[in-house]
């Protein structure tokens, strides 16, 4: 497949946004149960503003993917069958909840909704945080299922796709939260950094598993099943067009084998290895600069990872254009 930059930015930006929100609310949940000190409203409020900026960036990027963005409202209609439609509904819903969560904190308006028998007070921001957490995970599932549900794109058609979207988004979000905390609330940086390291390690395992799986996939469709001629030797002599078609542009990444071999260790280094190193160094030296660098390095690694994710998928229609491949 040809990776579309709009979709690469959409999925990586909202992934980091969702991860950051989950990080913020994880800290607030710990604080609710007295495991960590509750932070000032500004910490959660401005953190959520950062989440909103990332989500808006992703949303804007997604519009560049559409031929008719003015009709985008129609995409909310087919939620019964289409994961893309579900994503289009969940993303604004999540943004709305994050906006309210940010507002309750920034305005300091957190009325207590219920008091649990143990004396724990559940205020509005906690309720919104729970709703936002559920929506963040739903959004991860919707985004990943857009790809995982396509059964003949076998590189994507696996539960690992969903797991990796959650883990990769979570890793970048928690790394960003670490850098954010290092600036706003330095005492919390270790908490976020610890989780960022754990999730980045898990993401490394998950992504390695999918790379391993995909490298051993045996194609189900062949040129023989594509044209129904059972002969071992079939060569395409004409593609039915001289100057290329939509099919030759959309389904081939157009990069060399060598490039594909090089980008793989490249994104592993930038998405996992270097961020882990920078997180470790940043936390041990309490350097916001190194932690910010960890996020930037990891995000750029994830851009390459997402590019590879799309490019790696081999569409069965390519059998009809093997002359190109």
């Amino acid at each position: 497949m040809k990776p579309a930059y709009s979709v690469i930015f959409l999925t990586t930006l909202i992934g980091a946004g969702q991860g950051l929100f989950l990080a913020l609310f994880t800290q607030q949940s710990y604080a609710l149960f007295g495991q960590l000190p509750m932070q000032e409203d500004g910490f959660y409020g401005y953190g959520s503003v950062l989440v909103l900026l990332l989500l808006c960036g992703g949303l804007v990027a997604s519009f560049f993917h559409l031929g008719h963005p003015e009709r985008a409202w129609r995409t909310a209609t087919q939620w019964r069958t289409s994961w893309l439609s579900r994503e289009v509904i969940v993303l604004p819903a999540f943004m709305g909840v994050v906006f309210l969560y940010a507002t309750t904190h920034l305005l300091g308006w957190r009325p207590v909704l219920i008091t649990l028998p143990s004396g724990l007070e559940i205020d509005l921001s906690i309720a919104l945080g729970v709703a936002g957490t559920l929506l963040a995970f739903t959004l991860f599932i919707c985004t990943a299922m857009i790809y995982a549900c396509l059964r003949f794109l076998r590189e994507w058609n696996s539960p690992l796709t969903v797991i990796n979207y959650i883990l990769l988004g979570g890793a970048s979000g928690f790394t960003l939260a670490t850098a954010f905390a290092a600036v706003i609330a330095p005492l919390q940086a270790n908490f976020f950094g610890g989780w960022a390291i754990i999730i980045t390690l898990l993401a490394f395992v998950g992504r390695s598993a999918s790379l391993f799986r995909n490298s051993r996939l045996k194609p189900i469709s062949t040129i023989q099943t594509a044209i129904g001629i059972k002969h071992p030797q079939i060569v395409q002599r004409s593609k039915g067009a001289m100057g290329g078609t939509f099919n030759t542009r959309e389904f081939f990444h157009g990069k060399s084998e060598k490039f594909m071999r090089r980008i793989k260790p490249g994104f592993i280094l930038f998405s996992f290895m270097l961020p882990l190193l920078l997180l470790f160094l940043g936390l041990s030296s309490a350097s916001a600069l190194l932690l910010g660098g960890a996020f930037i390095v990891q995000y750029s690694g994830l851009l390459a990872e997402r590019w590879f994710f799309f490019a790696e998928a081999k569409h069965p229609q390519n059998h009809y254009y093997q002359g190109k491949a």
Binding site: I223, I229, I234, Q236, S238, K239, G240, T245, Y320
Partner: peptide, 10 residues
Amino acid sequence: FFNRVQTFEI
């Protein structure tokens, strides 16, 4: 195009 003719050598 809605329809294309491709050629294969078998």
